[in-house]
Simulated assay, not measured.
Amino acid sequence: MSLINHSQAKVFDGWHKQYIHQSSTLNCEMRFAIYLPLEATEDNRVPVLYWLSGLTCTDENFMQKAGAFKKAAELGIAIVAPDTSPRGEGVPDDPEGAYDFGLGAGFYLNATQEPWQEHYQMYSYIVDELPQLIEAHFPVSKRKAISGHSMGGHGALTIGIKNPTAYSSISAFSPICHPMAVPWGQKAFRNYLGEDKTKWQQYDAVELMKNHLVTTPILVDQGNADSFLTEQLKPETLQSAAIGAKADLTLRIQPGYDHSYYFIQTFIDDHLEFHANYLKSE
């Protein structure tokens, strides 16, 4: 599969690069970004953190705003940031142009309903196609972890829980913990998956925890000044499910922090160090 180098910039002696490729899973052209630390060579393949961004975001938000490169360079970890949905001509969007559905809002699931089914297969793209592409074209190992923010936190939790041998660790900032129970998730699930709520459960971290043996370590940070906390995020539901499942969840409520990348900047080093402990443990 061919890659087109869209941009590149040297940072902390490594390289941030954007690439465009034709996705067979999503049936459209996609862009992703990758940060490769200096020590990443064919003779020294480095582990990878996959970062999933939130509603309205692209591959650029985390890479430009999170301030993650210095610590990633220090730890010798690559970071891959995909887009948040399929894009391009012929890819359907929310009919009303709303920010919380359609373009920029793929919810990291495989849609089963028309007209979304043809393109909105973000779960398979993240789990299968993208890692295969990254491992084939860049000096990275098969050791990988997953993290994300908001909708992307939901994606990181659900993908990590459902694929316990694929990811060494899971983390999230301000995740949509129980999408079946909140407006963002209900809108997305109803449109992408239909009315059968047993299908919704396949993409809900709280429901998955009830039905899976979760042994992967999980770190979640949530600001208590987040305007979406009560209506959309509900971290207490994840904590309750983790206690019931005896899952290895550390939930940190951070006083005064909101939903923004200022919050992510503050604690991203903690998350990178958390993942490094597991990525480099084998």
Rank of each mutant, 00 (worst) to 15 (best):
P179A: 13
K65Y: 15
M209T: 00
L55H: 10
N277Q: 10
Q121C: 14
P179I: 05
A205Q: 03
K17A: 15
Y120K: 06
T165E: 11
N27Q: 13
S24Y: 15
N5H: 11
E195R: 06
K162P: 00
L36S: 12
S85P: 08
A245W: 05
Y99S: 15
I243M: 09
V206G: 00
V140K: 01
E195C: 01
Q8R: 04
P217S: 00
H212L: 08
P164T: 02
Y192F: 11
D43E: 12
N277H: 10
W184F: 13
S168Q: 13
M63T: 15
S147E: 10
G76A: 03
I264L: 05
T230G: 10
G14F: 01
S7F: 09
V46W: 04
A111Q: 06
N61T: 02
L130F: 13
M63W: 15
S85W: 04
R87T: 11
Y35A: 04
K17V: 12
D204P: 00
A205W: 00
L249V: 14
D13H: 12
Y257H: 13
F107P: 09
L208I: 02
V206L: 10
K144I: 03
H137D: 11
A81S: 14
W116M: 09
E39T: 14
M122D: 07
M122N: 10
L219N: 00
A166K: 11
P235R: 01
T158S: 06
P131F: 02
H149V: 06
M122A: 07
M151Q: 15
K246I: 11
L238A: 03
T158P: 02
G102E: 01
Y108A: 12
E29D: 10
G256Y: 07
G106S: 10
K210L: 06
G102D: 07
E89H: 12
A111K: 04
C57Y: 05
T198F: 00
A205R: 01
T112W: 03
T215A: 09
E207D: 02
V182G: 05
L55K: 07
V46N: 04
E282K: 14
I20D: 09
I176M: 13
H21P: 01
W116L: 11
Y123V: 06
A241H: 00
T84F: 11
A205C: 05
S174A: 15
D221Y: 15
D204I: 00
S260Y: 06
A172G: 09
L233N: 12
A247F: 06
